[in-house]
Design a protein around this nucleic acid. Structure first.
Length: 329
DNA sequence: CGACGATA
DNA sequence: TATCGTCGG
């Protein structure tokens, strides 16, 4: 879900042109979830090949990636590793929501209520090992690099920006601000009004709010994150006031609030995440034979459509870093 | 979500 | 050229 910062964040609107030549670290889990939940038929059934394998995510990766490559962007997909033990409650909660949604989806299908069916089908989306493996296989064939995180993908992607290996992180969640991503892009999609990409710079966010990243993390912990439930009644605006006029420590002491986890450890999930520093990034040209075999032969995609996406992919500059990333700001 | 054809 | 509706797998 991600931390609820909407009330204190003022994103800039940018255009695809502003990303020309840029390396973007894409939160893979975030993208895959979007594809799985939204690429569906009217009754909520995902796209599938004739063997019943889900292909919605493959469709999403193929068409979105080829589009952004055509626009001069060099993508890197960053996959999640092992979740923190602090995330257990969130994971269990999500599983229950999914299972409940699946039940309601099937019930609505029996009644022939497509709208309700679709609503619950979207919520039933599940990230299986097959989804992850097939996504990585497609990226390899497309010549798009991906990085396997040790922990949170957003933490890894944020580090990659800090380290100069990517220009920005693309994710719908604001969590990468907590992980220290200097630049963040939301709505990196081709649909939408072509120019409603949201852009955030961490330093601008902190300057405007007149707080430090540590204080932003404190706000998140009070609002609630994937790793802790937060404090009831504290939203982003209240949290901001607390860190500016007082502190999270003083506030919980005054209110007699106790966390059932160690506060410093919770902060460290964001401030000192476990990072895989041994990654290498290389763009290759798309393998036309393999992509046709994988998508058309194995997964029943239309060859005509795949080839037109392949054509867009051929714009990819396969040098390791773009000029902008060597010399740019 | 994004491709593609229809429509104007 | 822009917007809409339906299909894709």
């Amino acid at each position: 879900m991600g931390v609820k910062f909407k009330d204190i964040i003022e994103p800039e609107i940018i255009n695809f042109k502003d990303l020309n030549g840029r390396i973007i670290a894409i939160d893979a889990a975030n993208s895959l979830y979007q594809f799985l939940s939204s690429i569906r038929q009217a009754d909520g059934t995902p796209l599938m090949d004739k063997n019943g394998n889900i292909t919605s995510h493959l469709s999403g990766i193929l068409y979105r990636t080829s589009n952004i490559v055509e626009k001069g962007i060099k993508p890197i997909y960053v996959f999640d590793g092992e979740p923190s033990e602090y995330k257990e409650n969130t994971i269990n909660e999500r599983r229950e929501i999914r299972q409940d949604a699946e039940k309601k989806w099937k019930e609505a299908l029996k009644k022939g209520d497509e709208q309700t069916a679709m609503k619950f089908a979207k919520r039933s989306s599940r990230m299986s090992p097959y989804i992850l493996e097939s996504a990585k296989e497609l990226l390899e064939i497309m010549g798009i690099p991906y990085v396997q995180s040790f922990g949170e993908g957003e933490a890894q992607a944020s580090y990659m920006v800090l380290n100069g290996d990517a220009w920005a992180v693309a994710s719908q969640d604001y969590d990468c601000l907590l992980f220290g991503a200097k630049k963040i892009i939301r709505n990196l999609t081709i649909s939408g009004n072509l120019s409603d990409l949201e852009y955030l710079e961490l330093d601008n966010v902190l300057n405007r709010l007149e707080i430090t990243r540590e204080q932003l993390v404190d706000i998140a912990i009070m609002v609630g994150t994937d790793f802790n439930p937060g404090i009831k009644g504290v939203g982003a605006k209240t949290g901001l006031k607390i860190v500016k006029n007082s502190s999270i420590e003083k506030y919980i002491k005054e209110k007699g609030i106790t966390f059932d986890v160690n506060l410093e450890e919770l902060k460290n999930i964001f401030l000192n995440p476990n990072i895989n520093k041994n990654y290498n990034i290389k763009w290759k040209s798309v393998d036309k034979t393999k992509i046709v075999d994988f998508l058309c032969e194995k997964h029943d995609f239309s060859e005509e459509r795949v080839l037109s996406a392949v054509k867009k992919m051929e714009k990819l500059n396969t040098t390791q870093k773009s000029l902008e990333d060597w010399f740019g700001k």
